[in-house]
Design a protein around this nucleic acid. Structure first.
Lengths: 169, 169
DNA sequence: CTTAAATGGTTTCAATTGAAACTAACTATC
DNA sequence: GATAGTTAGTTTCAATTGAAACCATTTAAG
């Protein structure tokens, strides 16, 4: 069956690769997904157990805590979340009293979100924990490796953004 | 408010860090989640458009195609999926006719899954596409950087596994 | 044998997510 | 100042996911 590739009508630049040689566990998207899901799950459980908040809620708290009050739309840009995610996270945080909304009198569609007392307290406690987790995660890396990692992730993210936008089919 | 840290009763090894200096977009778990979600979304849309399969289904096809027929439980180990995910993906692929199930006569709880004709055809077509995407993603990296990346991901994944298992709270 | 425990896999239920539709408020144009 | 088009944010609906309970079968223990 030496002409299976022809019979199957391939047209990729990887036509020549024997499909049987493919290894899922060496496939970068799979590795990234696996690593990311392990990390996220661990962090998510921590936040949930300690503060009863989800990851999207954590992102809002992190942004509002470090950059100060801003609107949902501004958060959307900074946290790479879509407006639905932001809206839902804000609704929960508002209900649980961790953020406050102040409608902008100049444009009543907008409202400025800010941390409440309890929100600020969560921020103060959660940031050191988050940093501890990150430190644990990277504790097997040298300083140079950490620097390399940041650079690599930056490059990959740029490519990934290109891949996502504009039909790439 | 110079003793806020004391007032807030911190106890982490990152106590000294000013919480306001925290930057979400420099936080590794966030970066990983962002990159992974961009990559996954892009690939997911490709698979969906071309073959009408989801990412979990793709994983089964990839494993069965490269490693040959095996049971759900064996797939679970190789693809880092839990048994529910495998069961659901197998159910869909079975319904769409891309895999076949053969109950093990020696242990009727198990069944061996294998690619059908159409499943094999999808495998043959999808692997080159997947590799193309991966190549695009890493095309901004030198060979050395690619090698570094693999090594880094491996180290991080090992740490992440430790972080997930065994209460780390 | 008979019961208890373990294993392979499926189902169920609630919570989360994604995409599209929607509402309200504002801006620009005529 | 009416109308059309934008923008900010919310809601809705279906699909996906996670966790626990469940079923069927096999293995182990008495």
């Amino acid at each position: 069956m030496k002409s299976q590739a022809i019979a199957e009508g391939r047209k990729s630049s990887h036509d020549g690769i024997s499909a049987s040689a493919f290894a899922l566990d060496a496939f970068l998207p799979y590795r990234l997904a696996l690593l990311s899901s392990l990390v996220s799950r661990s962090i998510q459980k921590l936040y949930e157990a300690e503060f009863d908040i989800s990851i999207p809620e954590w992102r809002l708290i992190a942004i509002l805590g470090s950059d100060g009050p801003m609107t949902a739309n501004e958060i959307r840009g900074r946290a790479a979340m879509d407006k639905v995610q932001v809206s839902r996270a804000a609704a929960k945080l508002s209900k649980s009293g961790h953020i406050l909304r102040r409608t902008d009198p100049d444009d009543r569609r907008k409202s400025t979100l800010s941390l409440s007392e309890t929100g600020q307290s969560i921020y103060n406690h959660i940031v050191p924990m988050a940093l501890d987790r990150e430190a644990f995660l990277t504790s097997a890396l040298t300083e140079k490796e950490k620097a390399d990692l940041i650079k690599l992730l930056e490059k990959l993210t740029k490519r990934a953004e290109k891949m996502t936008s504009k039909s790439f089919l």
